[in-house]
């Protein structure tokens, strides 16, 4: 039986490669200290830009500070969330009408109480396709676009990820990945994780040739 000895690293603000997002990271750290009425933050960007990582990381950070924080990614019992100190809501563009009303109420309540509410979506607030009363509320707080990483920064992110999982990742493997695979981080990280697993199974070090075998089309990697 194969044991996965390396659980996926927990998203944190520390293991997020910052790139041009330093102001956003700072804003997430200090959000619970914001004045009443200024504690909402809307993050947007294309899929794979790191929104989910940031929301989960912020939730974990607030929990570690003793706040009762929740991360939400789909329809839920919204009234139950009123009891929390901080809430992060992901993929707002997928919420149905009822959930949008739920989030609308939660927003009003959290704003009045000065409690942190983070929402993530694919589009800028003005282009977001949700109820207008919710849309304008999301645009009311701080708004940040997650800035995509450059190839160099992605390379750093991959190296850091490999370190956390405890394997050596040669630079030429990263270069090959960046040249041959879609370069959004979830794809890159996904390939890297499979590569790690396969190298453990095959008992071979991570090399370009191992990666080539992994990426070989039309047949699953075999030994």
């Amino acid at each position: 039986m194969l044991l996965d000895f390396q659980p996926a690293p927990v998203p944190s603000l520390v293991n997020f490669v910052v790139g041009r997002n330093q102001e956003l990271i700072d804003a997430l750290r200090t959000l619970p200290l914001a004045e009443q009425g200024a504690a909402s933050l809307y993050v947007w960007g294309e899929s794979g830009s790191g929104k989910t990582h940031l929301l989960k990381a912020a939730t974990a950070l607030y929990l570690s500070r003793g706040l009762n924080a929740a991360y939400v990614e789909e329809a839920t019992d919204w009234s139950r969330l009123s009891a929390y100190d901080a809430v992060a809501v992901d993929n707002v563009q997928n919420l149905d009408e009822d959930s949008q009303v739920g989030l609308f109420n939660l927003f009003n309540e959290f704003r009045d109480a000065g409690r942190p509410l983070i929402v993530a979506g694919r589009d800028a607030p003005q282009a977001l396709e949700v109820r207008p009363d919710l849309r304008t509320r999301l645009g009311w707080g701080l708004v940040y676009q997650v800035q995509a990483l450059s190839d160099d920064e992605k390379s750093q992110a991959l190296q850091r990820h490999a370190n956390e999982r405890g394997f050596r990742l040669p630079q030429e493997v990263i270069d090959y990945l960046l040249a041959h695979v879609r370069r959004d981080l979830p794809t890159l990280m996904g390939v890297l994780d499979s590569l790690d697993k396969w190298s453990l199974t095959a008992k071979k070090p991570v090399t370009v040739s191992l990666l080539k075998q992994l990426l070989q089309p039309a047949s699953s990697p075999t030994q």
Partner: peptide, 10 residues
């Protein structure tokens, strides 16, 4: 007005 406030906040 909300969007205006949001822009100013940012």
């Amino acid at each position: 007005v909300r969007d205006l406030e949001g822009a100013l906040n940012r």
